[in-house]
Structures are given as structure tokens and as C-alpha cells.
Design a protein around this nucleic acid. Structure first.
Lengths: 128, 128
DNA sequence: TCCTATCACTTGCTAATTGCAAGTGACCAG
DNA sequence: CTGGTCACTTGCAATTAGCAAGTGATAGGA
């Protein structure tokens, strides 16, 4: 996670948020994690087809920003999975609103899945 | 606004939304418009200091995506202002959630202003 | 033992985007 | 005729994105 005295463009919370997650891919990874995905390969297999180097970079940034945590799930060979932190899980309401908005205004987009809309941040932490 | 048969990366509404507004500046412009700003110079004077060419580009994209509308406010010299469409105004709940999130987790960020949190999409349209 | 496969990345390289600084065009006021 | 305002545009260097291919650790099978 970035150290304390972070210098953002302004003191506006929205602006700070966009400096962390304002791009085309970061929130898609968070979306996948909200849906139970946790491994590098899972994220790569999402239909949007994130390039591998971008994925590695975004996972690093999300971890630096305290939104996700990287944890080993086996030691031989060493392999890691990615889990939402409380900060990351609390992005769920944002994603839910954004999903609703897009479904309302983007012709041809699917409605957000029921389990996604019914989820709550607390449920996304440890016990899957 | 982009024509119908738009080809997005996937049918996921979140993904489509991020193709429209997934960058560090677009939602800041929408934020400013939610706060009553409407002119090029207003946006440029926001504390984040958006570069002029980026601002022009983002206003064009937001208009193409039907989020804002460009309207003349005087004819000599021809000058335009930018207003939220219903689609744009309905981004307010997303911004409110994101503002709350960031204020909760970004040390040093201001709370979202009261009038911003109290606003409703309908109020952002014609009658200011 | 050697071969193949899996998973999680990294590297190289080109193309596109960003951001800074400066410039432009239309007009108005003195 | 000069200077100023507003809303952009342009040029250019620097950063970032994206594609394709490669790497390293290990397991499993012939």
C-alpha cells in the first residue's frame, strides 16, 4: 500500500479514487474477484482478454493501493492467489451502481448478474 | 452518441462502462458538471489541472457517448457550454458511492460536499 | 531420463495516448 | 490599433498500452 503522505492531484476524494482505479482494466479485475475469481489465469480468461503484462501491472498497483492482497496457495512451485481486502470489497457498491447504469444506457449489454447485485462487501472477504 | 451496434470488448455492462469513462479525467468533468460547472474554462480551473488538449478530447468523447450535450450560450463569438444528458446525470449515484469510498479509505481526502451527496440526478438537468 | 504440460509471469518492440507549452481565431473594450 | 478573453488546436517528447513470444519452476507420464 502506498505510504501515508500520498500526494494526489487534489484533496477531492473522487480525484484520488480515479488516480487509483481510473483506467479500463482495474475495476474489471475487482469485478472478477467479486465473482469469486482469484488466480492470474482466471483473470486472463475473462472475456475482455486483458493483455498479460497489463494484468501483472494492475495486480501490482491494486496491491500497492491496498485494494487486494497477494497470498501463496501452494509452495511448490510457489503460486499466489489474489484476494480482496476490506478496502477492495467496499468497491462493490460502486461496481453495482456502475453496472446498473451501463445496463440501463448501453444497448446490448447484459443485466448485472443476480448474485453480483445481491452480494455484500462483507461476504467477499475470507469465507469466499 | 456512438451508433447502435457498438462493439464493446464484451457484453458485460461494467466493461462497456469502463470503455466509455474508464480514465483519470472523464468522471472529474462529470463531477464538475454535477456541481454546476458548464464551461470549458470552468473545467480547466478545477484544482486537478486537466491539460487543455485532454479536456477538449474528453468533452468530445463524453458527447459522442451521449453523456453530455454541447449547446451554444452566445453567438458572437460562438461559444458553447456543456450540460449533462439524462444518461450523464444518472452517473451521479456512481460518483456518490465512489466519493464515499475514497473518503473512507484515502487518508487526507475531504468528505464529499453535502450538496453533492444530497443531489439527485433529476436536479442536474435543465433548471440547474 | 526425457518429454510435455501448466501456471504465472516477463521481455521486446511498436503503436497509441498523455501531458506540457505555445499558438490560433473570433470577437470586444478602450 | 492594442490588449484581453475564451475556447480551443498544434507540436513534440515522454509515458503507457498492447501484441507476441519467451522464461522458470515444477509435476506427470512414457
Amino acid at each position: 500500500m502506498k505510504s501515508l503522505a500520498q500526494n494526489y492531484r487534489s484533496q477531492c476524494p473522487l480525484s484520488a479514487a480515479l488516480e487509483m482505479i481510473g483506467d479500463k482494466w482495474s475495476l474489471l479485475i475487482v469485478r472478477d474477484m467479486c465473482m469469486g475469481k482469484s488466480r492470474y489465469g482466471d483473470f486472463q480468461n475473462s472475456p475482455e482478454g486483458i493483455p498479460s503484462n497489463i494484468l501483472a501491472n494492475r495486480l501490482r498497483q491494486l496491491e500497492e493501493n491496498g485494494i487486494i492482497k497477494k497470498q501463496p496457495y501452494q509452495t511448490n512451485p510457489p503460486r499466489y492467489e489474489y484476494l480482496l481486502s476490506p478496502k477492495g470489497a467496499d468497491l462493490l457498491p460502486v461496481l453495482q451502481q456502475l453496472g446498473l447504469w451501463a445496463h440501463r444506457y448501453v444497448p446490448g449489454s447484459m443485466p448485472p448478474p443476480d448474485d453480483f447485485m445481491a452480494a455484500k462487501p462483507e461476504e467477499l472477504l475470507a469465507g469466499k
